[in-house]
Nucleic acid binder design. Structure first.
Lengths: 287, 287
DNA sequence: CAAAAAATGAAATATAATTTCAAAATAAGC
DNA sequence: GCTTATTTTGAAATTATATTTCATTTTTTG
């Protein structure tokens, strides 16, 4: 990446070397950087109280080729600074605003999760998935949605996945599972009763255990062979942070999935194609 | 709205909806995004082997006002070009790189979905949800994960939700549902057999119908009272675009949920608190 | 295979950026 | 303090660039 200097800082630093009118223009642009991107020379000239010619001269003075260039650079550097979007969702807000706030939250929890993901763990897990005969998955409540996503992804590429909400049934299944099985537990808190019990059973049976949780210090994270920690994002409203942590979990599953698919693409590619063809042939549908 | 969707991914995702020449141009621009920022229409036209008119049409096709806009947006998003984050995930890639690529794709499909969401529809739907006695939900395959998320969210705030994969059972339920019921259908393609049949039954019974789909022209979208269209994002690898469209759907559900909670916060706040207390008291857990 | 529809590019037009140049403001010299 | 150079500035002219129009070609449909 050709790291260009931030144009806003560049304008600021050169402000005092400029002539009176150009400085005035520079100050106006700094104040209205977002607006300026959508202006043309004559509009901006009117607003800033200068002539179009001064605008072009100003651009040259700060080291750019012209006004078009300024707009390009301004847009790139004046990215999302609207403070309003970071505040919590409160009563009676416009739907569009709610949506914008959610975008920000989704994005930041995904970015945060990616940043802190232990990629070497992921790689090891991907190998275990390849080696194991059956994967058992468990998730309760919101985490069950993630467990389902996991199940769908890995089933489709030909990996046998057992996924049930019935923890009695699952504990029986785990007890009779063979050594080369893998137990994946998804729990945001990592403290849910059922989850801990099932993980303990799997440990006793010496199965590989993976725990996907937001809390690195949780009982679950301490218990399993490979804790995968995601950073879930804070409460948006009414202490209902469920969705951002859901997305973080789904993201984590996706990285795991692609890491696995990536390493073992030859055999999977064929399977994927076949399963798609099969579904379409038998049920005449595509989603 | 400050957070715009990533233009490079946007071009990629629309590539197949474009005409032959526009597609050719799009491919050229993707290959030479950095160079294009310094070109004008006639130069680019020559290099890409199309006419200037096509360039302008192309910009409009991908949702921009014109060529200048394209250059502005291209520059802003070309920072990741050198790092190769836009290329598809191929064999034997580093896990960290896979994660970075996925972040970009998740973020872009969320932004895209938010941008095109019809907020007035959302508002109306939120009112219908308030007025209805029972909500029926149906989603198959990946969409079932979303249906579950919907169910969890609205059940928790005291709205009765019926959600089953058994379409025979669901059709009986719909036939005996009262007029003030709502049927929410989730289908990425909007063409799945079961989905259409069920939606038709609901229409006949004059229930309110909502269809969440990626395709505005699909049978489902045409059939329901309120189509909610999300923009899903392109294939990352092996034609498995499931995750980005999943996230888009979850995002859409979330906006709907918060829009509803927001408008009717007084009564819901109490319910939410109560249900949390109940779960903790009875099962001694918190997730 | 013919008719209709869609896509495309050449040329015309509109728009916007840039340059020129004369007037105004400022600085330097006497 | 006045005159003369120098710089700064904006109005108008020019040039460059984007956009639209429309006739032609290509593709699709009946």
């Amino acid at each position: 990446m050709i790291l260009e200097e931030n144009i806003i800082l560049q304008i600021k630093s050169k402000l005092n070397e400029l002539s009176k009118t150009e400085k005035k223009l520079g100050e106006y642009i700094l104040q209205h950087s977002v607006e300026t991107v959508n202006d043309n020379t004559s509009e901006l000239a009117k607003k800033a109280g200068v002539s179009p010619a001064t605008i072009v001269r100003f651009c040259r003075s700060i080291g750019l080729s012209g006004f078009s260039q300024l707009k390009i650079r301004l847009y790139a550097d004046s990215s999302s600074v609207d403070e309003g979007l970071y505040s919590d969702i409160t009563s009676n807000e416009d739907v569009a605003l709610i949506a914008d706030k959610l975008v920000l939250r989704f994005n930041s929890s995904i970015a945060q999760t990616a940043k802190h993901l232990d990629t070497s763990h992921i790689e090891k897990i991907s190998e275990i998935i390849d080696a194991c005969t059956t994967i058992y998955v468990y998730g309760l409540g919101a985490s069950h949605v993630v467990a389902d996503d996991f199940t769908q992804k890995f089933s489709r590429i030909g990996k046998p996945v057992v996924n049930t909400l019935d923890h009695h049934l699952l504990s029986s299944a785990l007890i009779s599972a063979d050594d080369h099985s893998l137990f994946v537990v998804i729990s945001n808190s990592g403290e849910t009763n059922e989850v801990i019990k099932l993980a303990e059973i799997a440990k006793q049976k010496k199965l590989y255990t993976i725990g996907i949780s937001q809390n690195a210090n949780s009982t679950l994270a301490q218990l399993v062979d490979f804790p995968v920690i995601h950073h879930g994002g804070e409460a948006v409203m009414l202490r209902s942070a469920a969705t951002t942590s859901l997305v973080s979990q789904l993201f984590t599953i996706d990285v795991l999935y692609y890491a696995y698919v990536n390493k073992h693409s030859q055999k999977i590619l064929k399977l994927l194609k076949d399963s798609k063809i099969n579904i379409q042939t038998f049920f005449k549908e595509n989603s």
